[in-house]
Simulated assay, not measured.
Amino acid sequence: MKTLRSAKCGETVTVQKLGGEGALKRRIMDMGITKGTSIYVRKVAPLGDPVEITIRGYELSIRKNEAENILVD
């Protein structure tokens, strides 16, 4: 399995598992990123931070440390 951080621009992935603990995991879930959700990777900044995604019909930018805790397939 790979992480959202390693997903390429233009790729659509599905969330398999959320890593992290406590506040970090809660924050990821509050953004609508839950198991089984489809994510389209729109852009990745030149230095890899942030990653711009489309999820559940809205656009979202997340930090690379958050993206590393999202396992996708």
Rank of each mutant, 00 (worst) to 15 (best):
M31F: 15
N69I: 01
P50F: 14
L4I: 01
L18W: 07
G10Q: 05
V51K: 09
E52C: 14
I55R: 04
R56L: 10
S61Q: 15
S38C: 01
K35F: 00
I62D: 13
R63I: 02
R26C: 03
P50M: 10
K25H: 05
Q16V: 08
R63M: 12
N69D: 12
T37L: 01
L60S: 03
Q16H: 00
E21K: 12
D73H: 03
R27K: 11
E66G: 00
G36D: 03
G36S: 01
G48M: 06
Y58F: 10
A23R: 12
I39K: 05
T14F: 08
L18Q: 11
R42C: 09
A7I: 00
G20P: 04
L71A: 06
E66S: 08
A23L: 12
G32H: 02
T54L: 13
K25Q: 15
V13W: 07
M1T: 06
K8W: 00
G22R: 04
T14Y: 11
K8A: 15
V72N: 04
E68S: 07
V13P: 00
G10M: 08
I53N: 05
L24Y: 02
T37E: 15
G48L: 09
K25D: 06
R27H: 07
K8G: 15
C9Q: 14
A7L: 04
D49L: 04
I33P: 11
L60M: 11
A67D: 12
V44M: 08
Y40T: 11
T54R: 10
I28P: 04
E52I: 08
G19S: 12
T34H: 03
K2P: 00
I33N: 10
T3Y: 06
D73L: 01
G22C: 02
G36R: 02
T14S: 04
T3Q: 12
P46A: 07
R26D: 09
V13D: 00
M31I: 01
A45K: 14
D30H: 05
A7M: 08
M1H: 06
K64G: 00
Y58H: 13
K25C: 12
L4M: 11
E59T: 15
G10F: 09
T34M: 03
L47M: 13
M31H: 07
I28E: 05
G32C: 05
T34C: 07
G32W: 01
V72H: 05
P50R: 13
K43T: 07
I53A: 10
L24K: 08
M29C: 05
G10E: 09
G32E: 02
L4H: 02
Y58V: 02
T12R: 07
S6Q: 14
G19T: 06
D73R: 11
S61C: 13
G57F: 03
T54N: 07
I62V: 15
T54W: 07
R63S: 15
